[in-house]
């Protein structure tokens, strides 16, 4: 089963909408609650990254009997140094975004802790693709 949601860059009033829709879907599908809890953390962080840094993005969710695959594909500035971005505490968020309590450099580490597989590819000036897999 596959579904997808659009994510609007810069629009914080809608941040979390896509993650919340996916959470509802996973509940309907009777996915283990412990797994939903972890997946939701990773999804929300990835969604907020698109809102905070990119221009637009798509969240694609693909579920089968053995795994949930989540892909967040954005058009945006890209990440020049992914290893650096993965470091706890490192952030390039704007002061406005930080004032809202985002941009603490915890997003990508939160994602890594909450999925079984994480793969990030990025091209500067074009965009970033985050692929996360969790086994059921």
């Amino acid at each position: 089963m596959q579904f997808e949601y659009e994510i609007e860059g810069g629009n914080f009033s809608r941040a979390g909408y896509a993650s919340s829709e996916v959470k509802k879907k996973l509940r309907q599908l009777n996915v283990d609650l412990k797994i939903i809890k972890r997946v939701v953390v990773a999804l929300y962080e990835a969604e907020v990254n698109v809102v905070a840094h990119a221009w637009s993005g798509i969240m694609r969710v693909d579920i089968d009997r053995g795994r949930i695959s989540l892909e967040i594909d954005d058009e945006g500035p890209g990440i020049p140094d992914i290893d650096k971005a993965m470091e706890e505490g490192f952030s390039t968020a704007s002061p406005e975004v930080r004032e809202m309590g985002f941009g603490a450099g915890m997003g990508l580490p939160n994602i890594k802790k909450n999925v079984d597989k994480l793969n990030i590819t990025s091209e500067v000036g074009k965009g970033t693709k985050v692929v996360m897999v969790t086994y059921l």
Partner: peptide, 25 residues
Amino acid sequence: LSDVMGNAGEGMVWITLQTHRNVTA
């Protein structure tokens, strides 16, 4: 927000000074 996302648990009361809509999310 990411601290809460990563560490708070179901059923907890979140004490904060943040007053915007993302807190609800």
